[in-house]
Nucleic acid binder design. Structure first.
Lengths: 215, 215
DNA sequence: GAATTTTATATGTGATCACAAAAAAAAATT
DNA sequence: AATTTTTTTTTGTGATCACATATAAAATTC
């Protein structure tokens, strides 16, 4: 029997995908963690089919690792891969920020300031997944203005690959977040200084570089 | 019954994925073409299951479009999306080329020259899918030296999204390929001039921009 | 004859099953 | 006690089925 949410066209495999993705994105799964189709299926109270489809999807996004025998786990990044992903963040995010800048009017900057305040609060209170969520929301809100859906979705797969590693690097390095680059980013946005903006986005991403831990 | 290739650990869904991907990549499917699970299953003489998994995978790579009701088709690009993909090619390919350059020794350049000759032949003989294949091989061979697997795989999904549109733009614009930028790229590689190399890669990708046709 | 309704077919989704192969657990051996 | 072998359990894959719904075809109405 096909189970659909009432009065909605959402599909089970898509719901499972979103839940699983968010668990990875907000740091509820650590690198190396092992998952099983049947385990996930019973956790999300469904059959294995929708889980299979969402696992296949997350795997092709680099968010999950499949062993040669198909065993599912959260990837552990070596430093080469980590640096590559950081470099990708820098390239794509500076591109998106510069493209968004001309369309970043007062209303948007106000919203960014609000999100930024929220993020600073979560940094102080050491709430990792809320901090990560607010940080991503800040960047995402800005980049959405670039109106470059393909780039944004690629960036999101990059985030997805970095998240578990950064999340657990964070637990032991909260002090790294003491100074908040976002304030300077907002200033550059107000001044419409794209040169500065590029450099600052690059710098902001650089902070993450120090969160790398070997597992 | 599970059907595996003898003495090999290749899986059916992976084989189906590769075949379907190559059909898209080498231009055997045009934008708008409609596919069905059962149709593909019988074409590849398998059941729908492996096809479902590979279609889901190609869809998440942007190579296939799924309608709200799940109907499968080859995406048609509007000019915004096309330009975004071209921009992505430029950003990622210049990055990879520059990173590959220090490791591009004589043996590699010799191989690139060989591939380039092949490509020029297929351009003259107007064999579109062979031309596309040789062109991709040229770029891929160079970029492999950058040893950046994540970037390369992202680039490949970008190619996958552009392929069908470019392929059928090509049929009516062979003349655009008269002058071959690859020769200059090879010169820059020999001179180890990364400044020049960036510009030339950018230029080479630009040629594709003119192959955009509305369907 | 064109537009609308009805019927029939095709298609994607989710559930379930069998099976091979990989892990894990248990038993036997050294 | 540690290692090897055997047995059991777990797990992913591929096949098949039922079903809802979207699309196509046929019939009906105006």
């Amino acid at each position: 029997m096909i189970v659909r949410k009432k009065d909605s066209n959402s599909l089970v495999h898509d719901e499972v995908y979103k839940k699983l993705r968010d668990n990875i994105l907000y740091g509820f799964l650590r690198p190396g963690d092992v998952l099983t189709l049947r385990g996930l299926a019973s956790e999300f109270s469904t059959s294995v089919m929708p889980v299979r489809e969402s696992v296949r999807r997350l795997w092709s996004e680099g968010a999950l690792k499949l062993s040669v025998s198909g065993r599912i786990s959260i990837p552990t990044l070596n430093s080469d891969k980590f640096n590559e992903l950081i470099r990708l963040r820098k390239i794509i995010e500076t591109e998106l920020a510069v493209k968004a800048m001309p369309r970043a009017h007062k209303a948007l900057i106000d919203r960014l300031e609000l999100i930024n305040g929220k993020m600073e609060f979560f940094a102080k209170s050491r709430e990792a997944s809320l901090y990560i969520g607010a940080n991503m929301e800040f960047h995402r809100t800005l980049y959405l203005r670039a109106q470059s859906p393909v780039m944004l979705s690629i960036l999101e797969t990059v985030w997805l690959q970095l998240s578990p590693t950064i999340r657990f690097g964070l637990s032991e390095n909260w002090n790294l977040l003491d100074k908040n680059e976002h304030d300077y980013i907002l200033k550059a946005l107000k001044k419409k200084d794209s040169e500065d903006l590029s450099i600052l986005i690059d710098k902001d991403v650089s902070i993450c570089e120090n969160l790398f831990l070997l597992f």
